[in-house]
């Protein structure tokens, strides 16, 4: 290096290669970032913890059988009537949990719609169990 600067503290490091790398990293992360737009309905399974005993009369029990028929309190119900039925049941006792018991062969779409309608009706606790024949 012939053109050495006179003052020592003016010595500079060449940062151009570092900049190149930083830019390449930046472009890589910009390109690979994908903001997921997935919409979903929260579902909860009863946990493995020892079950709280609920009086069976307090639980709003919704059954979906293998033919995708919906029963609320053992009465055949249309999917459009699920919300109204759960609303009237909740009016009697607002804190009642809703238990959706679905047969293993039933369609998942029906289950999602029932859980959704229960939420719309105002149920706070909706849990999901498999129906044992």
């Amino acid at each position: 290096m012939r053109k050495r600067r006179h003052k020592i503290d003016e010595a500079e490091i060449n940062i151009a290669p570092m900049l190149d790398i930083i830019f390449i990293l930046l472009i890589f992360f910009i390109v690979t970032t994908s903001f997921v737009k997935e919409f979903g309905v929260d579902m909860s399974r009863p946990s493995n913890a020892p079950p709280k005993t609920e009086k069976i009369s307090e639980v709003i029990f919704v059954k979906i059988d293998a033919n995708d028929q919906i029963f609320i309190k053992d009465r055949l119900t249309d999917i459009r009537a699920v919300r109204a039925n759960i609303e009237s049941a909740l009016a009697a006792s607002a804190e009642s949990p809703v238990v959706v018991a679905a047969a293993r062969e039933s369609d998942a779409g029906v289950l999602v719609r029932v859980v959704d309608q229960a939420r719309v009706a105002g149920a706070v606790r909706v849990s999901l169990v498999a129906l044992v024949e």
Binding site: G40, S106, D107, V112, L128
Partner: peptide
């Protein structure tokens, strides 16, 4: 992400497996 015609039994089994694997925040796509 379950198809509307997917069997519910598989969905319930999967929810249990996911929770056993250590994820407690589970939702079903809609």
């Amino acid at each position: 992400i379950a198809d509307t015609e997917a069997p519910t039994g598989v969905l319930i089994d999967l929810m249990d497996q996911v929770r056993l694997g250590g994820i407690s925040e589970i939702s079903v796509s809609a």
